[in-house]
Design a protein around this nucleic acid. Structure first.
Lengths: 167, 167
DNA sequence: TTAAACTTTCAAAAATTATTGAAAATTAAT
DNA sequence: ATTAATTTTCAATAATTTTTGAAAGTTTAA
């Protein structure tokens, strides 16, 4: 496989994965080309490389910046804006995990806590509801805590060791 | 908050979370009502409770069965089919993780391995491509391994302890 | 301050995904 | 074998999401 084929394969796979994760294709693909590019790219570069419109590029770059995984840079003496992605994969994983926890897991945990807190009238239906939503609450809370700890900036001895042992 | 309000809130939150995770709303909501129901439900019950069509219920029940988190049961002497969900949250998490790993992470890992294996012509572009896709490969592989180990059926001493320590 | 270079916004169009509903298929009892 | 109960399939429709493109907005330099 030569470079261009590999690049296309990578970009389209990254786009497809994004789609499965609720991130739109253009956003994931823009991230992909920035991630593998040794130099920052302009909006024009991105539009051309992916064959997408200016509006699309602009909006998705904004989203990527909101996620904290793409930065805008200005080259002195140049009018155009350049974009580059977070290059450290650990940091990338951390940002994504953080964002997903904030947007998805935490709101869900909040609702699970609320609804599992109702008082039961003693019926089987209500007892079961409370029991099951409590169990989900515990699961989600554990998962979220672990996600945050494992990904946390300061990797402590335990987690570092753990990664080695588990892998 | 009384039971019906709590139930609706739970069902709709579960549906919304599913959507964010690339699982359609009906599928997630069907799972939700089965999960909190003390008894198995018929397709009719599900259609009525969620206000969805027969075709929709049928297809999404099939998907849930493919995911291994809903089972069909037949009551002796009854024509109708009943459905019940996996009730053990640990098992639920395990099945979901397994399915996602199989459908999403593993195919991605495969592509990353392929594309990072090309031979470079020595240019900065190609060197960077190989370096970055290799890093992603390592990250995805580590994440997948950990996911599988932590969720694995036979929780060993290390993981059990770990969950306690991290939480 | 004007003009050129560039970016953002957003209504409309296109593409994708989910849902319906009715016909076809299946199942089980008579 | 026929019928009635039930489920599945799938083409058509509806809903949602993404993308476009051009007008409006910004920024910088002269």
């Amino acid at each position: 496989m030569e470079f261009n084929e590999a690049k296309e394969k990578f970009v389209s796979t990254w786009g497809a994965l994004g789609t499965l994760w609720g991130i739109n294709k253009a956003m994931a693909q823009i991230h992909a080309i920035l991630f593998i590019s040794p130099d920052p790219l302009t909006m024009e570069d991105i539009m051309e490389e992916l064959g997408i419109s200016r509006g699309n590029a602009s909006m998705n770059l904004r989203h990527l910046m909101e996620w904290g995984i793409v930065y805008k840079i200005n080259k002195t003496g140049e009018r155009k804006e350049y974009f580059k992605s977070e290059k450290d994969v650990t940091e990338l994983a951390r940002q994504i995990a953080k964002e997903r926890s904030r947007r998805e897991i935490q709101p869900t945990i909040k609702v699970l806590k609320e609804v599992s807190g109702i008082s039961s009238n003693g019926s089987l239906k209500e007892e079961e509801f409370i029991k099951k939503t409590k169990e989900l609450y515990d699961l989600a809370d554990t998962a979220d805590t672990m996600l945050n700890k494992v990904i946390a900036q300061e990797q402590n001895w335990i987690t570092k060791t753990l990664v080695k042992i588990l892998k």
